[in-house]
């Protein structure tokens, strides 16, 4: 029972202190919430793009654009040359079909109406078997020299470029996260240190009448944890509101690119709150650690 009452008292004490200076508390929590929401939000964006580009960069597809003037016989010949044992499928997109599907887009249709000839080439979409990207690339290099072949394009090319940008974005998000985490710890450290200094008399008397170090430290740790907890909750609210309004807009914007922006899952939001509370505890621990040792005599 003692175990429970000791902690209950410390928790009450911390809550009382949080509530006793509402303006300070609120501004601290807002600061915490924003510091956590920014890197988390950034990471969310980067992670969404990451999923897509990973899919593509591993895709074993290439587009073989043929010369405008090739006839059906040549097309078939090229198609046969491409159908090697590691190739799963070679699909022809006829230039007329391509034009038709392009016409379905009203804006482009206007442009196409002003062009007499079909500007689109026949396209062969070559899909290799899984894991045969290297072979496919070699095939592409060779095919480029064939008669009737105009250009080769790999999906994986631009996806790789995108991926390197995303990797950079990830590093940036992580750096932001780390910096903000250090900021949160330092901030909590300062705040709790001031509190410990303000309560010096109380701490000294408590130690004289038999308080253990953990008894002294407990309300400060709880204070840090509670503040971090509320900061984390606020961050979750910020991220949820932000993604509610932006996810659908972003998805519309990037639907062509096939990127779907996700929202954080409940587990991820929970982890965010726990991390935030932990940062508060770490700051409080550092602050109390040194000062309590000083008061020990």
């Amino acid at each position: 029972m003692n175990w429970f009452f000791l902690r209950l008292d410390a928790l009450k004490d911390s809550l009382k202190r949080l509530l006793s200076r509402p303006i300070v508390t609120i501004s601290n929590i807002v600061g915490l919430g924003i510091s956590i929401a920014i890197p988390a939000g950034l990471f969310l964006l980067v992670a969404s793009a990451d999923n897509l580009s990973r899919d593509i960069s591993e895709s074993t597809q290439m587009n073989v654009f043929l010369d405008l003037g090739v006839n059906d016989e040549q097309v078939n010949k090229i198609k046969q040359r491409l159908s090697l044992n590691y190739v799963k499928e070679v699909k022809l997109i006829d230039r007329d079909d391509a034009l038709k599907s392009l016409r379905e887009n009203n804006e482009i249709a206007v442009v196409l109406d002003n062009i007499d000839n079909n500007p689109l080439p026949h396209t062969l979409v070559v899909t290799a078997k899984e894991g045969k990207l290297v072979e496919l690339e070699a095939l592409g290099r060779e095919a480029k020299t064939w008669e009737g072949v105009d250009q080769i394009a790999f999906d994986s090319d631009w996806a790789r470029r995108l991926q390197s940008f995303i990797d950079l974005g990830k590093v940036v998000a992580l750096c932001f996260g780390a910096l903000f985490a250090v900021g949160i710890i330092a901030n909590t450290y300062n705040l709790i240190r001031l509190q410990v200094l303000n309560r010096r008399e109380e701490i000294e008397v408590a130690k004289l009448v038999g308080a253990t170090n953990s008894f002294i430290r407990r309300p400060f740790l709880y204070f840090g944890a509670l503040q971090g907890l509320f900061g984390g909750l606020l961050a979750v609210v910020i991220i949820e509101i932000g993604s509610r309004y932006s996810v659908s807009t972003l998805n519309e914007l990037f639907s062509q690119a096939g990127i779907t922006f996700q929202r954080l899952t409940v587990q991820e939001l929970g982890v965010l709150i726990i991390i935030s509370a932990l940062l508060g505890i770490i700051g409080a621990w550092f602050a109390t650690n040194r000062l309590i040792a000083i008061y020990n005599k």
């Binding site: 029972m1 009452f5 000791l6 008292d9 408590a206 009448v209 038999g210």
Partner: peptide, 11 residues
């Protein structure tokens, strides 16, 4: 009450 709170007695 302080010494008793430190000892963790119920309220």
């Amino acid at each position: 009450a302080l010494p008793l709170i430190i000892s963790g007695l119920p309220r």
